[in-house]
Simulated scan of single mutants.
Amino acid sequence: MVCNQNLKNAIIAILVPLPSIIFYLTFLNNYHSSISIPNNPSFFSTLWTWCYHHPLLFANALFFFNVNIIFWLIGQIQSSHWLIDPYWTVIPVMLVHYYATHPLAQYDLWRSKIVILLTWVWSIRLTHNYFRREKWQWGAREDWRFTQMSQQYGKLWWWVSFFAVYVSQQIFLIGLSLPLYVVHFVNKPLSILDLVAIVVCLSGIVIAYFADTQLHDFMSRNNQLKGLGKPVIPVLDTGLWYYSRRPNYFGETLWWWGLVVFAWNLGHGWTFIGALVNTFCLAYVARLVEDRMLKQESRAEAFKLYQKTTSAWIPWFKSFPSDVKNKNA
């Protein structure tokens, strides 16, 4: 039964982006005639012309119809909004290739190749972490925050979920991916700031990878201890987690800010708004996670001490308040 459901969800996940892919390929094959023959009154000619002249709005339209509506309908049928989680790591890859292949795109080829490669590396890392965390299953569960919200809204959740789960994700992902758009619609030579952007992006990917790996190993070790009937380790405070309470979130934000540096270099620093909003959202999520930790009696005391001594976000050296020093004296 579990295997059948896993296979079913895998097939759904593979097939679900096809409407957008097929529609975009159809546009690429037909826009030439619409552009070359002005004042063509046909519906499709008007549609292809609009898609040609409005690449960013076109991306939003594809997202709205394929993700917001189709993903939401699947979520209603399955009573689980799991599908958006793995696609959080896939949609930026789809967007960067969409921007690179749009007929109006103009860009420095090397910058484009670098950004596309970095986006693939980021996506593979995060996708691997998602499936590792989910024990290599498709749709075994939805994000705990969605489950919590469904309990909060009750019978209203069926329509609230459309906005809370999907429309919000469109705002986040399109906003975060704006630097990918800028990179492919502004053509300037490479400069030293591009090197800075590469370093920041790679640093974010590497930090997030090691932080998530250390967290996975910690949770696996605790599960083994539970199975043996032994007490678990209450707090992860080794490796990168010794210097930060959320090094995985720090690495993730560093990645998105690195993309902002690419756009800043091209004269579009305003794209920082997506990374800024995402940083605030991750900080809020980190607080929710810590609140859950403090509600667990077996971990609360150790975690309070961890909070007092460890940086909340940016990795830094331990700070020991006077009361903690006196206890250790």
Rank of each mutant, 00 (worst) to 15 (best):
A312W: 14
S36F: 12
K113I: 11
F210A: 02
Q76Y: 12
F71P: 02
I21T: 13
T89S: 05
Y243R: 03
F27T: 08
L7S: 05
L126P: 10
V260E: 04
R125D: 12
I114H: 00
F218G: 03
V93W: 08
V261E: 01
S112F: 09
F272N: 01
F218T: 09
W159S: 02
Q214V: 14
Y166I: 13
D217H: 10
T271P: 01
R132S: 12
E290Y: 13
L225Y: 05
W264E: 02
Y166Q: 03
F131G: 00
Q214I: 15
V67P: 03
Y181T: 06
C201N: 06
L57V: 14
E252I: 10
I192V: 13
T213C: 04
A100G: 05
I35N: 01
I70D: 09
V200C: 00
V235Y: 03
W136H: 12
S20P: 11
M149V: 06
L73K: 10
Y243M: 04
W88Q: 07
L228H: 06
K135P: 07
H128W: 14
A275H: 04
W110M: 14
D217Y: 11
V200A: 04
V186L: 03
T253D: 07
R287E: 04
A59N: 08
S311T: 11
I70C: 07
F317E: 08
F44W: 08
L282V: 14
R245D: 08
Y243L: 09
R221P: 08
L95C: 06
M1L: 14
W50H: 04
Q78L: 14
Y249Q: 03
V196Y: 04
I21R: 00
D212V: 12
L236H: 04
D108L: 09
F172P: 00
Q137Y: 08
T309V: 14
Y284C: 01
S80P: 10
S42Y: 12
S112Y: 10
W313G: 00
G258V: 15
P179G: 04
P179Q: 06
G204R: 00
F71R: 00
F303I: 02
L109Q: 15
G227D: 09
I12Y: 02
I22L: 11
I205D: 01
A105F: 13
V199I: 15
Q169G: 08
Y284L: 00
I116V: 15
I74A: 03
S112C: 11
P189E: 01
V182A: 00
G267N: 06
V182Q: 10
I70H: 08
N66L: 06
I233Y: 02
A312K: 05
G258C: 09
T213Q: 07
D194A: 05
T271Q: 04
N29C: 09
A61I: 15
F303S: 01
C281W: 06
L215F: 08
N39I: 12
A105M: 14
I35K: 08
W110L: 14
V165I: 11
K318Y: 13
K8T: 14
S33P: 08
K135R: 12
L173G: 01
I12P: 09
Q214Y: 13
V115R: 00
W50I: 13
A329Y: 11
I192L: 09
I22K: 03
I192E: 04
H102D: 03
A302Q: 05
E301H: 09
E252Q: 10
W255F: 15
H97L: 09
H268N: 13
L259Q: 07
A283Y: 11
S203W: 13
P321T: 11
G267T: 13
M1C: 12
G274Y: 05
P247I: 02
W270S: 02
L195N: 07
G269E: 04
